[in-house]
């Protein structure tokens, strides 16, 4: 067995471009997903009951099925209902929907973890619902949900690799292509694994740093 990493190094510009796609899709899905997830969590808590049921069913379906099946359904099934998306928009849309379902669960537990007394206090102080949300719920929740959010965001980065299967030209696809072209699979996948590993490790460190910073704002329970 021989390792020829030079083959991979020749393709640095391609890899860099693909890495950019990975980062872009990831960032997009995290942003849209957390906005959508927050909206779902708010609607489930304060919206009308039937809407809550529908959203719950949606979240359960997304969380109960493989992301790959979801993305296949969207990418190959979409055109049959007039939803023809290119691979990058399809990937971004699919991943955002997937992220929204998971993030909504994090926010939901966050809402539940806020002591009722804090909301009652805001109510007594004459806050409107929107004010309570913005001034009490959001800041308190940030600290409560931060570890789970960091985890999920790292998970999202790893999930972007699945988009290679619907030919989104991201890191995994690009490096597989190099592997196929030069018959250097092991080298390419080793490189790609190291890239993901470095990035997730970095995110983990950043997350722990943020948690440490925020931890002093946390209320104590006892």
């Amino acid at each position: 067995m021989t390792f020829d990493f030079a083959l991979v190094l020749e393709n640095v510009p391609n890899i860099a471009r693909a890495f950019g796609v990975t980062l872009g899709v990831w960032a997009g899905a995290v942003v849209f997903g957390s906005i959508g997830g927050f909206a779902i969590a708010v609607a489930r808590r304060w919206g009308p009951t039937p809407v809550g049921w529908l959203l719950r069913a949606f979240v359960e379906v997304i969380r109960g099925t493989p992301f790959l099946v979801q993305i296949f359904l969207l990418y190959y099934g979409g055109p049959f209902i007039g939803l023809s998306l290119d691979n990058i928009p399809a990937g971004l849309f699919g991943l955002s929907v997937y992220a929204a379902a998971y993030y909504s669960e994090i926010f939901r537990t966050g809402f539940e973890a806020i002591p009722k007394g804090h909301l009652e206090a805001a109510d007594c102080a004459g806050f409107t619902r929107a004010q309570t949300l913005r001034r009490i719920v959001l800041p308190e929740m940030t600290m409560l949900v931060l570890p789970a959010m960091v985890n999920m965001t790292i998970l999202m980065l790893k999930e972007t690799a699945v988009l290679s299967i619907i030919s989104v030209p991201e890191l995994t696809l690009e490096v597989s292509a190099i592997g196929t072209a030069h018959y250097a699979f092991v080298e390419s996948f080793t490189i790609v694994a190291l890239l993901y590993w470095g990035l997730t490790d970095l995110c983990g460190r950043a997350g722990r740093l943020a948690e440490a910073r925020f931890s002093r704002y946390r209320f104590s329970h006892s």
Binding site: I154, K158, A161, T172, F185, F189, Y196, T200
Partner: peptide, 16 residues
């Protein structure tokens, strides 16, 4: 390593 890299990449790596 195994929590920090995509399963898909792990599978492809091991497969090859």
């Amino acid at each position: 390593f195994f929590r920090g890299t995509p399963l898909l990449v792990q599978l492809l790596l091991i497969y090859h």
